[in-house]
Structure formats: C-alpha cells, structure tokens
Amino acid sequence: MLTQFIYAYISTVGFSLLFNIPKSAILKSAMVGALGWLIYSEVHQFSQSAILSTFLGACVVSVLSEIFARKFKEAVTVFVIPGILPLVPGSGMYNTMLALIQQNFSTAALIGSETIFIAGSIAVAILLVSSFTRLIFLKKI
C-alpha cells in the first residue's frame, strides 16, 4: 500500500511537470493524485469493480482539488488534471483494441463498454463534486 502510494505520487509529479503546473503546486497536486489512486486501488481490491473504484477515486481527487484550490488560491484545474490522469482507463482502451484486432468481438464489446463506463464515471465524479461545491461556496475559483 505504501509502495503504491509512492509510485502514484512520483507518477503524478511527472504528469504535473508535463502540464507546466506552477512550482508551488507540484507536490500538492501529486498528493491529490496519489490519494486518489490509493482509494481506487483499495476499493478495487475489495469490491472488484473497476467502475465503482474509479468513481470513488475520482471523487476523492475532485474533493481534494476543490479544497486545495480554495486553500492555496489556485485554479482548480491545476490540481484536478494531473490528479485524474492515473485513473483514465488506458489499459481498457488497449485491451479493447487488442480484442478487436483478434476478432474477439464479444470480448471487445465487454471490455469496451466497461472502458466507456469508467471514463463516464470519472466525468460524473467531477461533475457531482464541482456542482455540489458550487452550491456550497457560491464563489468560483
């Protein structure tokens, strides 16, 4: 669990430098990404549902980003974008493509629909969290 956290932390530091995040925010946004991944992997271990665990992971990422954005007076995207990236279903995309090439159409449909739902769950998580924070704090950051 600790190794997962460290790997996710370093990975998110890499993503945040790729997106030129302000220097002061790099370590914070990596913290957001690593905690999001931790929730994802823990929930995945005990529920075996990639969709649920991605949803909860993305929820954690967006809640933390909204809090950090208000606390450190930055744009929310500075924290959300690198934090969310480890959850984006790259492996689902790859496996769908592979199944399509091998003409395993039923597998492709299965994995493909799951991938779409995972992407959708990320979207819904961001949507829910930022809608609620807008209800709570009327001020946009």
Binding site: F15, L18, V76, V80, I81, L85
Partner: peptide, 15 residues
C-alpha cells in the same frame, strides 16, 4: 501511451 491520454479534455469537457 499514458502521456498521450486526453485527461485535460475530459476534465474540461465536464467542467
């Protein structure tokens, strides 16, 4: 391929 994935586009689309 992680570095190519459209994380920014997804996030901004929703927001």
């Amino acid at each position: 391929i992680m570095i190519l994935l459209p994380g920014v586009a997804i996030t901004n689309a929703v927001r």
